[in-house]
Design a protein around this nucleic acid. Sequence first.
DNA 1: ACAGCTATATTGTTTAAACAACATATTGAT
DNA 2: ATCAATATGTTGTTTAAACAATATAGCTGT
Lengths: 189, 189
Amino acid sequence: MEKQIDPRILRTRKLIMDAFIQLSMKKDFKDITIKDITTAATVNRATFYSHFIDKYDLLEKVLSESVMREIIQEVSTHEVINQETIEAIFLSIIKFQSSISNQCRRSYEAFTPQIETIFKKELEAFFSEWAKKQWPNQNKSEIEVFAVMLSWALYGAAMHWMQNQTTQPEDYVKQLMPFIINIENDKTI
Amino acid sequence: MEKQIDPRILRTRKLIMDAFIQLSMKKDFKDITIKDITTAATVNRATFYSHFIDKYDLLEKVLSESVMREIIQEVSTHEVINQETIEAIFLSIIKFQSSISNQCRRSYEAFTPQIETIFKKELEAFFSEWAKKQWPNQNKSEIEVFAVMLSWALYGAAMHWMQNQTTQPEDYVKQLMPFIINIENDKTI
DNA sequence: ACAGCTATATTGTTTAAACAACATATTGAT
DNA sequence: ATCAATATGTTGTTTAAACAATATAGCTGT
């Protein structure tokens, strides 16, 4: 198995993505040109198009591959999904959202729907994978429902906190727990 | 003119050199393998050999291209060669020598002759270039003698300080000035 | 001393990326 | 509104780098 991808492909993808992340710290998304990205990545502009359809495709892939990986790695040390895991993920979402809303400014609103979709999809895959390990006997579709609900619930809560920011995130996340633990109990029969 | 080199060549050279610089901070020069370098640089090992003859060739080029450039850039803002320029260069040599003697440890002694040659050659080219601008009417060979003397004098002084380290480098360099200013005066007729 | 391991160095073939050229958009200043 | 400059995609050709195979040299331990 394991296809063994040409390292040039991996390197070029990384160069482009890293350049994009760096640029998006200084510039608004809408003001970043393909030329900007490829120049910073020391890559030909045509090469960009052999990896990504356009800027939006790049953003999508950066979010799902680069940023989400980082979040998931933060909690990948946890053995089982428990209160701590949930808290860690919640705080990671907040942290990421705050950083892009600072960095991207105007374009932030324009992209929240895309970002939301990617985020929930990634969280769902993550929870689904983990649930499978934790409850191997559980019916497949029930696992999926659990993953969907948890990812939406958590993301929704994070967005809610972002808009209100009444309490400290650490306190806020503790309020969520009773509801989330119920979902978990449903699954453990 | 200006050949316009394929950017892949430049990029690969930079990747290899940067990887080598990073590695030499953690490992002794003699323990760094070509595989180490190429892996860190995300480059095929065979590619290394199309750019450099071997590890020693790489070291030489890193010193003259990468490290010296850094030093020279630090003083490239100076309009004319004066006391400040000399001081800045002297302190840069000290700074660089201290860093490699810490980083390379054992291999440091083995390479000081090569390093010295490269250093003086680069300094000479730098002073020569600058002297040409500063005294355009001056005879070519006299310019060269000036550049040679100044580069040897400065490097020698730096080595002397490195071995004794009696005073602060900032104080030490001030002691050199009377001698160096004399050389300069000789050139201004 | 020699057997097994790893590093070095080289070469022919394949492939990813550079390049140049082109045809559209977009933008922006007059 | 217009014209120049700049950005976006696309394509055919060329080239640098990856790869795999090979031969040799240098350690290291038994």
